[in-house]
Design a protein around this nucleic acid. Sequence first.
DNA 1: GCGATCAGCT
DNA 2: CACAGCTGATCGC
Length: 411
Amino acid sequence: MSSFAGRMKEYPTVSVDRFDRENLHARAYFLSHCHKDHMKGLKGPLLKRKLQFSRTVRLYCSFVTRELLLSNSKYAFWEDYTVSLGRRRLLQPAATVCCWLQSATEDVVVTLLPAGHCPGSVMFLFEGSQGNVLYTGDFRLAHGDVSRMEHLHSGSRVKDIQSVYLDSTFYDPRFYQIPTREVCLSGISELVGSWISQSRHHVVWLNCKAAYGYEYLFTNLGEEFSTQIHVNSLTMFRKMPEILSYVTTDRRTQIHACRHPKDDEFLQGNRLPCGGSAPDGTPLRIISIKPSTMWFGERTRKTSVIIKTGSSSYRACFSFHSSYSEIKDFLLYLQPVNIHPSVIPIGRSLAEVTQMLKLMCRKQSDQPASVYRPLGVLKRSRVQPPTYGTSKPLDILYNVNQEVNQPPLDC
DNA sequence: GCGATCAGCT
DNA sequence: CACAGCTGATCGC
């Protein structure tokens, strides 16, 4: 859970992912993704009043995050005060008074980069007089992904990053490796396929938590098995055809991700949380699959990404956050001057994490031009457009969607 | 009656 | 295998 207080040292007049307390005075707001622990204060009456009196204060986020936000009635009042950004946007003082530094306004260029955490999730790159600052929000990026992000480069070189505000959820050697998205997905596919192919009464219940981030599972399984996944509601995906085509409120499907407050009891009674049953009265054969984070040490042998936990229940590896080695790869590539953790892993202290992160920072004697690069990344210094394996739906869900979005405003 | 916070649960 | 968020109790305004 994020404990970031909302403000960055370099650009203290903007607030990111926090909207209470001192953040009530911000001149611009940013939301990296639509998870509640990054939305504290966002439905506050004080903030609402401030907006109604201001012509310039706005909330900036991706198109998908804006849609998810507005689909929740508690946040619908943001309709007139939100701006969904393309990949780059110049925040001009005349329009937004984004930054107020040393008695003068200045322009800050904000770039949205895909974060791979949930639909609409982005990282924000702020470029202005106080240096380049990368706020990661929450992210799941694989090894090498950062080296392929065009906007983190200038020509063939990585930009000089002053500070990174980091999703350090798994920044602990204990979480050294987490199987890749592709490996997890194929393990789940295999299990689902082997079950639902047995008969039309064999169904799978995906025991997903109440949060965005499982959608790529639905789209990939839907695609692979030419079906749709039963969910409680479709309204939040109204303007996201690439998700909408793989989910349904029709209970007559073999893959479910529906929920009920007492879904445990339903399962004990061999019923789905939606109450669905076969039309001819034949009892359903249900298995449950619970996506959970699984991790492995640096040298521990990886075991299966699927674990059987009962006669008809399984856990399947799934992570919204980058592993320790993925975070290390990310930081060693960027070599920022400073790193600020936004999460303290369970059982660690702020001092410990800060100390460990210092090892990932650029040495003060190093010039940005002669930054140390670990051997493992030398071979991918060539800048390429972002790609995320071969999984097309993943690309659509986890990139800032430029087609559906406002046209990008390049500066 | 509303919001903030916490325990408990998953 | 520890993320994200719900429900319900309690407290204060």
